[in-house]
Amino acid sequence: MAGNIKKLVLGFILLGAIGIAPRFLGIISLNMAVELAIGALFAVSLNLLLSYTGLLSFGHALFFGMGAYVMGISITYMDGITLIPAILMGSLAAGLTALIFTPLLVRVTGTAFSMLTMAFGQLMYVLCIKMRGITGGEDGLTLFDMPLLSVPGVFSLDMTDPATLYYTVMGVVLISIGCMWYFTKTPLGGVQAGIRDNAQRVEYLGFHVSASKAVIFIISGTFAGLAGCLAAIFQQVISVDGFLRINVSFMPIMAIMIGGLGHFLGPVIGTIFLMFLNQMAMRYTDKVELVFGIVFIMVVMYAPYGIHGLWVKARIYWGIFRHRKGALGKEERT
């Protein structure tokens, strides 16, 4: 119980910090925070698949990009559309894409699943380059006139204002991550964990494993699409390289690994770390990819359970250390 209260207090402090941050942060830091939040949402959506169902999607950029492109296209080609329906269309299109792929993806597991997702991610990448007429090809789509995020007569938010954008993104991201967390606590979430550990047994308990996997795949795809929409609003340019390239799929996986596989908030921590690493690397060297590559190798080799794993390990060692000290103390006394 005490642990819960501690967590609650911590949560409120964090919420407060997010709330007042724009008062203290400059525009650059504010933008970084927005980028971070979007990355975290993307990574958490992937983690829902990876840590809770054991499915490693290597082509999640497909959904991220799908959300962004559908939103961007609807803004570009539909006059007078406001942002809310555009975002909804983007996310739903991503979810729908996931739905289309489910018959295929529930039939394979393990590495074959990763490879299939990657293959379709690449297919989308190439298609988007080639469909120049709609997607702008390699140049991408530039959203010159960002519509207002508004409900007529109720509120109207201008996304080109950094602080407004910050609050909107933070709000959407927090609610989305909250939804996904809540989801892991529901019966279907429980079934997912069972599938991750032992799919066959779950099937023999009367659960339709393929259908359960399909549902989570669609949910994960939808939230990834939402993250894509937010990223598009933030960057105002939707390009194939920024939204559909293999690296885009790869970053959230790395964030999950660095944060700690199997932990719900691991990807958030991982995203923060990657962001920080990126800043440091850019400041001190021009070989950012080299730094990233080395860090990935180090993480996989020496900290396979990421920061969360290191933290658990440290606590265990701390426990042993204290225990030893206590034992020594007793010996001295006797």
């Binding site: 019966p187 079934v191 550990d197 659960f207």
Partner: peptide, 25 residues
Amino acid sequence: LFEHQTVFEHLRLGILSRMGVRYNF
């Protein structure tokens, strides 16, 4: 069995299935 789950969580899955609560999220 399920490697990363408690005894309670095991039986909870079984009981959920009996209750017919399978897809509720």
